[in-house]
């Protein structure tokens, strides 16, 4: 076994920790979206159009409409949980994870990219599990859905990077509950996840277009259905990558301020 390259070395910490705790993470990353899929998709889906394909849902049945959105939302949830409590914890004395990495040849920038890589990997894992289950619900209509897995890590970075920039400098963890209630929940509900944004009043519709999760949802949905449109797809990708990129720049700066004292 060769020595790990420096940028990947932080992963050994997250991996060893994860090996201990993966059981308890199953509920948030796997069970929750599964329950949504079962209740909203199969349950509510039986009412909405009686399980028939609907033109208003882009010509698909309700469960097929919801499933790809839940994949994107799962990636978002994984990312937000990790980029708040886990990042905040890792730079505090009682965890010491970042501080001990700092004493090694790993640089502050690599600590940041290492943690972001880990979050992206966790999102990929969660989305893979979800894809398998949603396929069992008969919601996957195209092999393109496999490419939809890439939506997971990209969505994760879009949310994790800017949030980590904030969390690493946060003194307390109370504001994180605000992030969950006032930021994550509305995003989850109004990004075209459970109904098409065309149902929204015109003004709000444009707000939805600006939400990163909407772009993830649209991307994921087009891939599940095998209707990936190049122009729209690239647009969504560019938007997500743009937010992630800005987030990474901000995170790099925050990590340096917090850890290089």
């Amino acid at each position: 076994m060769q020595a790990l390259p420096a940028p990947l070395r932080p992963l050994s910490y997250f991996w060893v920790s994860f090996r201990r705790t993966w059981m308890s993470t199953l509920s948030t990353t796997f069970l929750t979206p599964l329950l949504y899929l079962a209740s909203l998709g199969a349950g509510l889906g039986a009412l909405v159009g009686h399980g028939q394909r609907l033109a208003s849902l882009g010509g698909q049945d309700y469960v097929s409409f919801v499933a790809p959105a839940l994949l994107a939302a799962t990636a978002m949830q994984v990312a937000i949980a990790q980029a708040t409590y886990d990042v905040w914890g890792a730079c505090n004395p009682w965890s010491g994870a970042y501080r001990s990495m700092q004493a090694s040849p790993i640089s502050v920038g690599q600590i940041m990219t290492g943690h972001m890589t880990w979050i992206a990997a966790r999102a990929l894992l969660a989305c893979t599990l979800f894809l398998v289950v949603s396929a069992a619900f008969g919601t996957v209509h195209s092999p393109e859905a496999l490419a939809g897995l890439a939506v997971g890590p990209l969505t994760a970075l879009t949310f994790a990077a800017p949030l980590a920039a904030y969390s690493v400098r946060a003194r307390h963890d109370q504001p994180f509950t605000v992030v969950f209630r006032l930021f994550m929940l509305p995003l989850f509900l109004f990004s075209g996840t459970f109904f098409p944004v065309s149902q929204l009043p015109v003004g709000l519709r444009y707000v939805a277009y600006a939400l990163p999760l909407w772009h993830s949802v649209e991307l994921s949905r087009s891939l599940y259905a095998g209707k990936f449109g190049l122009l729209a797809g690239l647009g969504h990708l560019a938007y997500l990558a743009g937010v992630a990129g800005i987030g990474l720049v901000l995170a790099r700066r925050s990590y340096r301020v917090r850890l290089s004292r």
């Binding site: 790990l4 070395r9 050994s12 910490y13 004395p93 965890s95 090694s104």
Partner: peptide, 23 residues
Amino acid sequence: DNLDLELSVSDNLFVYGRYFGIP
């Protein structure tokens, strides 16, 4: 002591050693 309290004694050493790229 910025050890990871949740990990075992030898896992703490292992993870830290990996930071230095030791095979």
